Every structure is written in C-alpha cells, then in structure tokens.
Simulated scan of single mutants.
Amino acid sequence: MTIASDGAQQGAPRRYRAMRDFLQSMDDTLPGKFEITKEGIVHDMMSPVGRHELTALRLRKRLEKAMPEEIVAHTGEPDVEDEPEGVMRRPDIMVIAEADMDVEGSIDPRTIVAAVEVVSRSNPDNDWVTKMRDYPLMGVPVYAVFDPRTGTGTVLTDIHATPDGPRYATRKDFVYGEDVTIADWTISTKDLPRYESETDEQP
C-alpha cells in the first residue's frame, strides 16, 4: 500500500528526506515493512513469515554455497538507498561483497551484485512492478524475482536507457524446478515452497 506520494514523483530531496526521517522516527512502532519509491512510502502491512521466509532462507544458502567466500547473500537491514533518486528499498536478499557492507548507514545500491525478491502475497505489485522499475534506476545490475504464488520467476539484467528511464533489457523467465543463473552463479530452484492458502504468510 502506498501511503504518501505527491513530491516523491519529482524526487524532491527535501520531501524524500522528510519521508526518510518519518520512517526513522517510527522505529518499530508499526508492523510490516516500509520502503520509499517514486510514489512515496510503500507499506507492506504483513510481516513476511512462513513460506516467504523459507524461500529466502533456501535461496540464501544455495547462493552462498555457490559463491566465493567474500561474496554474501545478505537478508535484513540495512536499507539500500539512492537519495538523489528518492528511492529506498530493502531487498529480501542482497548479493554483495562483504567488504562493501562495511559502511555507516544505508548500502550504496551500486555496490550490489544482485537483488533477489520473494513475492509477497499481500503486495505482489511491489516486486513485479515498482521494484522492476526502481532497481535499474538505482543501478542494481541484476534483479531476480521468485513468486511462490505461481512457482515461477524471472531474472532481469542489462540496464539500458529508455524514454521512461533506465530499464532492464534482458528477461529470463523460469519455473520452479529449473536451474537459474543469478549474476555469475547458478542454483537450483527445486523444493522451493509455494503458497497454498490465504494464511501462508500470516503469523
């Protein structure tokens, strides 16, 4: 759910900073996950648990098994922030060199090797629409989407300029059970869980 918009679409730094300060002031007083996109503050009201988190866990473990030790598949904070563009995201998994995490505050999106998202049942457009736009805008070179609703996904690469701004030029769709390549590493998608009922993400 988008709960603020207006000047965020112009990327106004002052408005963006006001939204950022508001989220920091809220701390952990409201449930769910907050991000800032071009439309404003996006609030995913459900805390992702259950099969969403199991998917992220299995993907993280498979990626880290395939990657060199200095590259990690990190889950959780901090946020990935591009203040000039007025965008702040928190990928379910960020593939990044461990050394590039040694910073104060938010992660520079241009240090990320890949962003991986597990689609939320409560707000799928956040992963399939707005992040598909925001990640190339932020300079994230690879964006992988896993959708437990359908047992499918896609990997997007090759940022190029378009009249609507930077977009991914290459899209490789997959179905669960196939091997998938994210950046330089290929992992299995076997045994990834699917959502089976409306309560799969409920605590």
Rank of each mutant, 00 (worst) to 15 (best):
E69F: 12
T29D: 12
D44Q: 15
P48A: 10
P48V: 09
G76I: 06
K61C: 05
F22Q: 14
M46E: 13
M45A: 14
S47V: 10
K33M: 06
P48E: 06
M67S: 06
I93E: 06
E53S: 15
R60Q: 15
E85S: 12
E77N: 13
M19T: 06
A97C: 10
A18V: 09
A12L: 15
L57D: 11
P13E: 12
A99Q: 09
E81F: 04
S25Q: 09
M94P: 02
I41R: 06
V80S: 04
E77C: 01
E85P: 10
Q24V: 05
D102P: 00
Q24N: 14
G76D: 10
E77M: 13
P91F: 03
E69G: 14
P48R: 09
M67T: 08
V87C: 10
K33E: 03
E53A: 15
Y16D: 02
R15Y: 10
R62S: 01
K65G: 00
D44R: 14
I96S: 04
L54F: 00
H74D: 02
K65W: 04
P84A: 12
R58N: 07
V87I: 15
R58Q: 09
P31S: 14
I96K: 05
I36K: 02
D44L: 15
I41N: 01
V72C: 09
R62I: 03
I71G: 01
D28G: 15
E81Y: 06
D21E: 15
R14T: 13
R15Q: 12
R51Q: 12
K61L: 12
I36M: 01
I93R: 05
R20T: 09
V72Y: 00
K65T: 10
V87H: 05
V72Q: 00
F34C: 05
I96D: 08
P31K: 13
K61P: 04
T75M: 13
L63Y: 01
L23A: 09
L23K: 00
